[in-house]
Computed example of a mutant assay.
Amino acid sequence: MERSSVLQVTMLESMEQPDHVVCLCNTHLYFHPTACNIRLILAAAALRHIQAICDAYTQEGKTTGMVFCGDFNSAPHLGVYQLMTFQMVPSDHADWSSDGKEQLLSTLELHQPMNIISACGTPAYTNYTSGFQATLDYIFIDDDRLEVTKIVPLPSDEEVKANIAIPSQVFPSDHLALVCDLKFS
Rank of each mutant, 00 (worst) to 15 (best):
T58E: 09
P153E: 09
R3N: 10
F132P: 03
G121F: 09
T149K: 14
P33W: 09
G100K: 08
S98A: 14
A44P: 01
E13H: 06
L83F: 04
I139M: 10
P33H: 10
I139T: 10
H175S: 10
G79S: 06
R48P: 00
L40R: 02
A43R: 00
T122I: 14
N37G: 06
L12R: 12
T64K: 03
S106F: 07
N26D: 13
V152D: 08
T85Y: 03
K101P: 07
T10M: 11
D71P: 09
S91K: 15
P76W: 04
Y138W: 07
Y81E: 00
A52Y: 06
L47T: 01
L40V: 03
V179N: 11
V80L: 08
H77Q: 12
K183E: 13
P172L: 11
F184N: 07
L78G: 00
D99W: 05
G70Y: 10
L154N: 09
T129W: 09
G70I: 10
S185P: 01
S168Q: 13
N26K: 05
P113F: 01
S118H: 05
E13K: 11
M15P: 01
Q169F: 08
P167H: 09
F140C: 10
A165S: 15
M84Q: 03
M84A: 11
I139G: 04
K183N: 06
S14H: 13
E109V: 03
Y81H: 14
Y125A: 08
L42P: 00
Q87K: 02
V67N: 01
C54R: 03
H93V: 04
G79Y: 05
L104N: 11
Q8S: 13
Q82L: 02
L40E: 02
T34P: 01
C120Q: 05
N163P: 00
M88K: 12
D143K: 14
S106M: 06
A52P: 02
S173P: 11
L83P: 00
Y125V: 08
S118E: 08
D71R: 07
P153V: 12
W96Q: 01
R48F: 04
Y30A: 10
A134G: 15
